[in-house]
C-alpha cells in the first residue's frame, strides 16, 4: 500500500503543472539559437514591418486606392503620369490613383497571397506526404509518381498553365496557381522524413508497446518529420510572393485592379517603365525586400533546427 506522503506527492503530480523550467523542447532550444542569429533578426524585422504595415494600412493610407484623384494630371497622349507632390508622396499611377496608398494597401493583398498559397500548398503536401510516407506500398508509388510528374514541369510554367485554366483571373486563381506548384515539393519533403521516421528506433519501440498505427503516424512520425517542412514553409512564403508577381507580370494576375497588389502593380508598370520607372521601382523594391525577409528567416530557421547545431 502507498504511504500517505507518497500518495500526496502523486496527487500533486496528477494535478499537473511541472516546475517552471521543466521541459525544454526542440522548439524552445531552436528559438534560443535563433535569437542570437543576426540574419534571423534582420529577416524578422523586415517581416515585422511588413505585417504591421499590412495591418495598419487602412489607417495609414490617406486615400482610397481605387479613386482616380489625380486623373487631371494623367495624359496618355503626352505620356504624363502625376509626379510626387504634397499629399501624394509617391505621386500617382497611370490612372491617377495615389501610389502611396496603393503601395500600403497592396501589402495586405501580397501578404494574403503569400500566406494562403503557402497554407494551401502545405496542406496539400501534408496530406499527400503523410499518405505516401505512412502507408507506403502502392499508395506511396502512385502518389510519388504523380508528384514526379508535377515536379518535372518547370514551376513557373506549371503555375502559368494552372492560372490559364481559369476563364477569368482573380486574386484567388493566382493563389491557387502558386499553391499547386508547391504541393509536390512539400509532399516529397514530408515523405522523405516520414520514411526516415518509419525506420527509426523510437517508432519500433512504440510498435513494441502495441501503439496503434494512427497514433504512431500522428504522434510519433509526423511531429518528428515536420522540421524540414516548417523551414520550407518560410521559404515558400517568399517564393509565393515572387511567383504571384511573375504571374501578374505575365498577364495572368487578377483582372480587377481596384484592389491593389504589388505583383499586379509591377505588371501594369511595364508599359511605362522607360519613362516612369518609379511605378515599377516601388512595388519591385517592396517585393524583393519582403521576399528577402522571408528567405532570411527560413534559412536561419533551417540552421537553428539542424540537430547538428544543438548543444
Amino acid at each position: 500500500m502507498l504511504t500517505s506522503s507518497r500518495r500526496q506527492r502523486i496527487d500533486d503530480l496528477a494535478a499537473g503543472g511541472g516546475a517552471p523550467d521543466a521541459g525544454v523542447s526542440l522548439a524552445v532550444s531552436a528559438w534560443r539559437r535563433l535569437r542570437r542569429s543576426p540574419l534571423f533578426l534582420v529577416g524578422a524585422a523586415i517581416i515585422g514591418v511588413f505585417v504591421v504595415m499590412a495591418l495598419l494600412a487602412p489607417w495609414l493610407a490617406q486615400h482610397d486606392p481605387a479613386l482616380r484623384l489625380l486623373d487631371d494630371q494623367v495624359s496618355r497622349a503626352r505620356n504624363e503620369i502625376p509626379p510626387a507632390q504634397p499629399g501624394h508622396p509617391l505621386g500617382g499611377d497611370q490612372q491617377g490613383r495615389d501610389l502611396y496608398s496603393r503601395m500600403l494597401l497592396g501589402s495586405q493583398q501580397t501578404l494574403l497571397v503569400a500566406v494562403l498559397a503557402t497554407v494551401i500548398g502545405l496542406g496539400g503536401g501534408l496530406v499527400l506526404g503523410t499518405l505516401a510516407g505512412a502507408i507506403g506500398g502502392w499508395v506511396d508509388s502512385v502518389v510519388m509518381r504523380l508528384v514526379d510528374v508535377m515536379l518535372s514541369i518547370p514551376s513557373l510554367l506549371l503555375a502559368v498553365s494552372v492560372g490559364a485554366l481559369f476563364a477569368r483571373q482573380t486574386q484567388f486563381t493566382v493563389i491557387l496557381a502558386v499553391a499547386i506548384v508547391q504541393i509536390p515539393i512539400f509532399a516529397r519533403l514530408l515523405r522523405g522524413s516520414m520514411l526516415a521516421q518509419r525506420a527509426s528506433d523510437h517508432v519500433l519501440a512504440a510498435r513494441a508497446l502495441g501503439v496503434r498505427r494512427r497514433a504512431i503516424v500522428f504522434r510519433h512520425m509526423l511531429p518528428n518529420s515536420l522540421g524540414p517542412v516548417v523551414v520550407q514553409s518560410t521559404l515558400v512564403l517568399a517564393i509565393a510572393i515572387i511567383d504571384a508577381a511573375a504571374l501578374s507580370f505575365l498577364g495572368l494576375g487578377a483582372a480587377d485592379d481596384s484592389v491593389p497588389e504589388w505583383g499586379q502593380m509591377l505588371g501594369r508598370a511595364q508599359d511605362v517603365i522607360d519613362s516612369h520607372p518609379q511605378l515599377a521601382f516601388w512595388p519591385a523594391g517592396a517585393i524583393i525586400t519582403v521576399a528577402l525577409g522571408f528567405t532570411l528567416v527560413g534559412e536561419s530557421l533551417r540552421d537553428a533546427l539542424d540537430p547538428k547545431n544543438r548543444r
Partner: peptide, 25 residues
C-alpha cells in the same frame, strides 16, 4: 498481435536515446 505487445510482451531496446520519441515528454 498489436493488442498483446506492450500488454503481455514487453521489449527493451539497446539505445535508450533513439528509442524514445524526442518531441514527446
Amino acid at each position: 498481435m498489436r493488442d498483446r505487445r506492450g500488454r503481455d510482451l514487453g521489449m527493451v531496446f539497446q539505445d535508450p536515446l533513439s528509442s524514445l520519441n524526442p518531441v514527446v515528454p
